[in-house]
Amino acid sequence: MSTVTLIHGLNLAAIYGLMAIGISILWSSVGMINMAHGATFAASGYAAWQVSLIAQPLIAAWLGTGLDASIAMGATMIASGLGAGAIFGGLIFLLAYLPIHEKANFAVRSLIVTLAINLATVQLLLYFFGPRQRALPKIFGLGRTEILGIPIRNDQLGTIVATALLMLVVVIWLKRSRKGLEITAMMQNPEGAVLSGISVRWTALPVTMLTGALAGLAAILLSQTVFVSPTAGALPLIKGLTIALLGGLGSIPGAIMGAILIGFLEAIVGSISFLGQRYVLFSQFLFIITVLIIRPRGLGGLLDQTRESRNA
């Protein structure tokens, strides 16, 4: 495996991991498969693009075109992606969780509602922005940086580092903080959580916002290599969802491991000359199906039995 493939694989793993962890956390704590995760992705991309149109001349006038300016631009882009994702997550909470979370069969109902939100958002984006693809400013610059003698494209390096940092922060936050403990408690046993005085209803809001923000960040990072478009969220959604399944819904380490496996699989299959890009999806799904046949709980799923008691 060449180093280019290795870096490409890590880059993809980072982006898919952000999507998969969001879907996984949301399923295990709130009990909802969020089909609108792709819409969050696309909407955050557009929000960041809108912000970049406004911010670019402002930053250019203020800081010129030096390193300061590009750092400021990068920070603005990441902040707007995270913010827009969090707001969209809150919207999903209001539309797809709050009105129906106590009804029977919430898992299926919310799946349908979020799917509707997904379709509606894509159509709204098409209506307002048209099908034209938009480019986000390159927040990590265009050149290459040499690390340990390996030249790495800046955007890939930035994506990998930013994702690793953010995931570390999220995992530590979930483990150490009071809010994080609430979310973990809800993931592992909803009844135990309410008996500890945790409101399941209102803990769902920070969860949807957090997972939305992760999707927003994924949108900014992936838009460094592909363009922003109304349907840009479809593929990341499908990959995020299948990776979350591969990792065992609800398991964060499982999702990270799944993302790395799928990212590398995509990079390797894409780089083999007689297979190439058109076999990427095929090989990924074949891999996921094989794993799930052998190990139906996924790579790390350990919380199935505590999850089921809730919607019975």
Binding site: T184, V194, L195, I198, S199, V200, L303
Partner: peptide, 29 residues
């Protein structure tokens, strides 16, 4: 009229504590 458990956390905060049958533990903590 709301679902079971909507008010439970408020009751806990008022000062009632229940240890349920089956313990309702968090296995991964």
């Amino acid at each position: 009229s709301t679902g079971a458990g909507r008010r439970t956390h408020a009751i806990v905060q008022l000062g009632v504590a229940l240890t349920p049958q089956g313990d309702a533990i968090f296995p991964g903590m």
